[in-house]
């Protein structure tokens, strides 16, 4: 006996998850931007549960795409590890302290404005395939944050340096605070910090953000998991499996994209999230 409505429901969920995985792996955002709206609007799943399911999916994208990017040396593991310190401390302080003093409405509006403002430096650099004139700052030299990777699209080995570390740390700290307060992976701030402050090549920035969001999401997911009844196994299982498949497909698609194309794709998502946050803040 087959329940066709359940099969159809699962097929739709799988297709949406596949798309989320592809978008997440290319942009370094994890895919919550696709999964949360789809679950709430089309599947009528309450927002808190949609966020919990999306956090598990983000861990799947981060790990699945991460295994490919790390192996191909596109991820800057040292930068990820060092900046995770800032994100993790931000997440703890966010959960322990700031929620008492800052409300989610103000935060959403500020976040939205900050994202839309950060579109300006990105748009200015739309045509730049690789970062120009980057000097290692002293901290970056001590941390050994410069590196090299083989760019399959350009067909050659790219050596790169890493610029201003302190602003990157500040942005990562804020990303951690927001992640624990708003229950999002805040991948968008991570890519911004890696690309705009550290000035890593775009695909290195998205791959490194992708690597980091798994650890940020686990912290947030822990809070949801302890509440137990927020994660639905029969929704999570198909979502996680197809998000993984999508992530692997995403790592293949990005090989054929130029850094400028990746940046434009990221800028589009950045604009959408910025507007979304403003609307969310104003309608609270």
């Amino acid at each position: 006996m087959i329940d066709w409505s359940a099969i159809g429901w699962m097929a739709a969920l799988s297709a949406a998850s596949l798309a989320g995985g592809i978008v997440g792996a290319i942009s370094g955002l994890g895919g919550g931007i696709v999964i949360v709206p789809v679950l709430t609007i089309f599947f009528h799943i309450p927002i808190q549960q949609a966020i919990a399911i999306s956090l598990v999916s983000i861990i799947a994208v981060s790990s699945g795409a991460g295994s490919v990017y790390v192996k191909e040396h596109i991820t800057n593991v040292r930068a990820a590890m060092f900046l995770e310190l800032a994100t993790a401390s931000g997440a703890i302080i966010g959960a322990a302290l700031v929620s008492r003093y800052l409300n989610a409405q103000v935060l959403s509006i500020l976040f939205g404005i900050a994202l839309l403002a950060s579109l300006i430096p990105i748009v200015v650099r739309f045509g730049e395939e690789l970062p120009q004139n980057v000097q290692n700052d002293r901290l970056a030299r001590f941390l050994k944050l410069d590196g090299s990777y083989f760019d399959k699209n350009l067909g050659r080995e790219i050596d790169y340096k890493a610029g201003r570390v302190p602003p990157a740390m500040a942005i990562m700290f804020i990303a951690g605070v927001l992640a624990s307060l708003l229950g999002i992976g805040a991948g968008v701030l991570k890519v911004l910090g890696l690309e705009m402050a550290l000035r890593l090549p775009t695909r290195v920035a998205t791959a490194t953000s992708n690597f980091m969001i798994g650890v940020t999401a686990i912290a947030a997911a822990g809070i949801y998991m302890h509440r137990g009844n927020l994660v639905m196994p029969y929704v999570v299982a198909p979502a996680a499996i197809f998000v993984l498949l999508g992530a692997i497909i995403g790592t293949k698609i990005i090989e054929r994209m130029s850094n400028t194309a990746i940046r434009k794709f990221f800028a589009l998502l950045l604009g959408i999230i910025g507007v979304e946050m403003l609307i969310k803040g104003m309608s609270m």
């Binding site: 087959i2 409505s5 359940a6 137990g228 927020l230 994660v231 639905m232 196994p233 029969y234």
Partner: peptide, 23 residues
């Protein structure tokens, strides 16, 4: 897990959305 669930007891959409995670 999904295969076993579908084999043993055909589950419907309502049930899928009402079962929660055991930690």
């Amino acid at each position: 897990g999904l295969t076993l669930s579908f084999m043993h007891h055909p589950i419907n959409v309502q049930r899928m959305q009402s079962i929660f995670f055991n930690y």
